[in-house]
């Protein structure tokens, strides 16, 4: 752990951290839009489209609505982005710099809260009733998916032999057991909600509440939020890969890892494009009953397997 501070800075800013994950994230955004377009019989945007969007937003004017709390309104996006970058840094260092860093699973799970929190706080501080609705929906969505997500994490912890160390979890059995597979399914559903895409794009439902918490954002802060969303599109599939699919791998195995990532991304996009948006009460119900039941079965099986020494459970 004797890493110098400037190495931290380098890791944080460039390689597994900000710049690298931003590039991957923007690519993921493009893949998302392109695949969506192909599903809808369209051509889709050019490769650099996400970059153009960001550059343009950065150049544009920043507006401040009168009812907003200026400080919170402007700084919420930064906190969200910082949390996302930190999560990307943790996950990236586990997957790319196997030996240099270790990460902690619970820390990671909590860091992944920060982006949603930023959206909630930002929406709430914009002084707009419609974005307040969006904030409340995002919070309700967190409450909904938190329960199964925590259970899935617990399942992973049991299966990996009670370790919280991400490196050990990567080396663990992942989804290669009944409980692991169920937990993978649960996590995938939760990731859909964490990304706030259809069928769980309830907080930002454009046709209901005009993009919810983001209603009042423009220019640079909006660009930061968009960057954060791009990062999440990189982080969350990577999170699933790290926990369940044995990480990205080393050397040539990395190609397989990239394949895993693209596959997960496409699954997310496919779910997004073949479902309508749920209502918030339906989403909460869905998570608290069906998904939690599934996650409970997973955790129960994992505990049983642990107690009786059955490795395939």
């Amino acid at each position: 752990m004797a890493t110098d501070w400037y190495m931290y800075l380098l890791y944080f800013l460039i390689f597994p951290g900000f710049i690298f994950s931003l590039l991957v994230g923007l690519l993921a955004v493009w893949i998302d839009r392109k695949v969506t377009a192909r599903i809808q019989w369209r051509v889709g945007p050019p490769l650099l489209q996400p970059v153009y969007d960001l550059v343009k937003l950065i150049g544009k004017e920043v507006l401040l609505p009168v009812g907003a709390q200026p400080l919170v309104f402007l700084f919420a996006p930064l906190v969200g982005l910082a949390g996302a970058v930190l999560a990307a840094f943790l996950l990236g260092s586990v997957n790319f710099l196997q030996s240099s860093f270790v990460g902690d699973l619970i820390v990671l799970v909590y860091l992944l809260f920060l982006p949603s929190l930023a959206i909630i706080i930002g929406g709430s501080a914009s002084g707009n009733p419609i974005s307040a609705i969006g904030s409340s929906r995002e919070m309700k969505l967190i409450l909904a998916y938190e329960l199964p997500l925590a259970l899935a994490v617990i399942t992973v912890i049991i299966n990996a032999g009670f370790t919280l160390n991400l490196n050990n979890i990567v080396a663990g059995p992942g989804a290669a057991s009944v409980s692991g597979f169920l937990a993978l399914l649960v996590t995938l559903i939760c990731v859909q909600a964490k990304l706030a895409v259809v069928p769980f794009d309830i907080p930002e439902a454009e046709t209901e509440i005009m993009e919810g918490p983001l209603v009042e954002y423009s220019g640079l802060p909006l660009a930061i939020f968009k960057t954060m969303e791009a990062l999440l599109l990189y982080i969350l599939p990577l999170y699933v890969i790290t926990l369940f699919l044995g990480g990205l791998g080393e050397g040539w195995w990395m190609l397989l890892g990239v394949l895993k990532y693209v596959l997960l991304l496409v699954i997310i996009i496919l779910i997004k494009n073949t479902n309508p948006r749920l209502r918030i009460d339906q989403a909460v119900n869905f998570f608290w009953t069906k998904v939690t039941a599934l996650a409970l079965i997973a955790a129960g099986l994992a505990a049983l397997g642990e107690i009786y020494g059955v490795s395939w459970l």
Binding site: R42, D201, A205, T207, E208, P276
Partner: peptide, 16 residues
């Protein structure tokens, strides 16, 4: 209607 419930695929297909 598809668009309103976030089902953009239906929107695009319907209009196609």
């Amino acid at each position: 209607a598809g668009h309103f419930i976030g089902y953009n695929t239906v929107f695009m297909w319907g209009w196609k």
